[in-house]
Amino acid sequence: MAILVTGATGNIGRMVVDQLLACGASDVRALTIDPERAALPAEVEVVEGHLGRVGSAAFAGVDRMYLAPSPGNVAEVLEVARAAGVRHVVDLSGEPESWWGSVCDAVEGSGLEWTHLWPADFMENTLSWSRQIRETGVIREPHADTATAPIAMKDIAAVAATALLNDGHVGRAHSLAGPEILTRAELVAHIADALDRDITFRTSTREETITALQPSMGDNTTWYVDNVLIDFAPPPQSLPITSVEDITGHPATTFDDWARANAARFLTD
């Protein structure tokens, strides 16, 4: 039976495909808008489509699926999947009270077996600082001491692959985090070390932060500043910093290692 990866050319979906293959999966199907440009591995069955326009053919013969975030039409997607015989869905979402809560509710109400993945702040979100790093060397945000345990997208994909390929994850919501708790100022310091240049954290107002991030984040800027940078501050002791290793058996990526591996991305558009 096939494993279907939706959003297979998205940031995390593409990594889920790679992780499944690395784990020895031999029947992987990828849903993508443009199969010719997807550049997916030859051993992957590529199906044209997306979550806003999913036909039953994409689910034929599928036993398990990775569900990329799709709050707008998740119920419709799950209905088609169930009718086609899909048994287990691993979804990327968030706690029920979060913006992604509608995905959790729909998945649990679908009648399918499920596994939720609830990741913390992505390490990749720090790439929104790239323009500030290049142009001013100053990062502007409201709270230097806000601490989280950011997680690399590759590690989220590894957990997704583990849940798709192994028993024992049905009916579980995996809260995911990186292996260390870091303040916003400490994240900046790690990036400065990786780039071998001076970068300063400057405590800024909400309006100054929005102005600084707008060129990089566009229409999402205000939501991100209000909901992530200002209102999101989980107690450090509640962060599941061993979750990735507990689930996959492999250590999670440290932010320092991630920053050094992705240093060039901070210097280009």
Results as ranks from 00 to 15, higher is better:
residue 164 L to C: 00
residue 18 D to H: 11
residue 124 E to M: 09
residue 78 L to R: 08
residue 6 T to C: 08
residue 157 A to V: 07
residue 266 F to L: 07
residue 29 R to P: 11
residue 42 A to R: 15
residue 127 L to F: 12
residue 63 D to L: 01
residue 172 R to F: 10
residue 21 L to H: 07
residue 162 T to R: 11
residue 57 A to P: 01
residue 102 S to E: 06
residue 80 V to M: 10
residue 121 D to H: 11
residue 198 D to M: 04
residue 174 H to R: 02
residue 195 L to W: 13
residue 126 T to K: 03
residue 177 A to G: 07
residue 54 V to N: 03
residue 84 A to T: 05
residue 33 I to A: 15
residue 153 M to L: 13
residue 152 A to M: 05
residue 70 S to T: 14
residue 132 Q to I: 02
residue 91 D to I: 02
residue 5 V to T: 05
residue 221 T to Q: 11
residue 230 I to K: 10
residue 62 V to A: 14
residue 119 P to Y: 07
residue 240 P to E: 03
residue 182 L to Y: 04
residue 219 D to V: 13
residue 180 E to Q: 13
residue 239 L to M: 13
residue 217 M to H: 04
residue 43 E to V: 10
residue 265 R to Y: 10
residue 93 S to R: 01
residue 251 P to L: 14
residue 249 G to W: 05
residue 90 V to Q: 08
residue 228 V to G: 06
residue 134 R to G: 14
residue 17 V to D: 01
residue 152 A to H: 03
residue 156 I to Q: 02
residue 258 W to Q: 00
residue 180 E to A: 12
residue 241 I to L: 00
residue 247 I to Q: 06
residue 18 D to R: 03
residue 190 H to D: 09
residue 206 R to S: 09
residue 134 R to M: 09
residue 201 F to R: 09
residue 63 D to H: 05
residue 176 L to E: 02
residue 189 A to N: 14
residue 166 N to G: 04
residue 74 V to M: 14
residue 116 H to S: 05
residue 15 M to S: 12
residue 26 S to R: 14
residue 81 A to S: 05
residue 236 P to I: 11
residue 166 N to L: 03
residue 85 G to N: 03
residue 27 D to M: 14
residue 31 L to K: 06
residue 207 E to R: 11
residue 215 P to R: 09
residue 147 A to H: 15
residue 201 F to C: 07
residue 235 P to C: 04
residue 179 P to F: 01
residue 201 F to A: 09
residue 81 A to G: 04
residue 125 N to I: 01
residue 148 T to I: 15
residue 262 N to C: 08
residue 42 A to C: 10
residue 63 D to A: 07
residue 87 R to G: 03
residue 120 A to S: 15
residue 28 V to L: 04
residue 121 D to Q: 14
residue 260 R to I: 10
residue 149 A to K: 00
residue 196 D to C: 13
residue 21 L to F: 05
residue 115 T to A: 04
residue 121 D to N: 11
residue 193 D to W: 00
residue 163 A to V: 10
residue 32 T to H: 08
residue 3 I to F: 00
residue 35 P to Y: 12
residue 1 M to A: 08
residue 135 E to N: 05
residue 6 T to N: 09
residue 34 D to H: 13
residue 64 R to K: 08
residue 85 G to M: 04
residue 85 G to A: 00
residue 123 M to D: 14
residue 224 Y to K: 02
residue 118 W to C: 01
residue 200 T to V: 13
residue 201 F to V: 02
residue 72 G to D: 15
residue 78 L to D: 00
residue 206 R to Y: 13
residue 128 S to Q: 12
residue 150 P to I: 12
residue 15 M to D: 15
residue 71 P to T: 08
residue 130 S to H: 05
residue 225 V to E: 14
residue 122 F to S: 09
residue 71 P to F: 06
residue 168 G to D: 08
residue 102 S to Y: 04
residue 120 A to M: 11
residue 164 L to G: 02
residue 117 L to A: 00
residue 191 I to P: 10
residue 85 G to Q: 03
residue 260 R to K: 13
residue 211 T to S: 14
residue 163 A to C: 11
residue 21 L to V: 06
residue 4 L to Q: 09
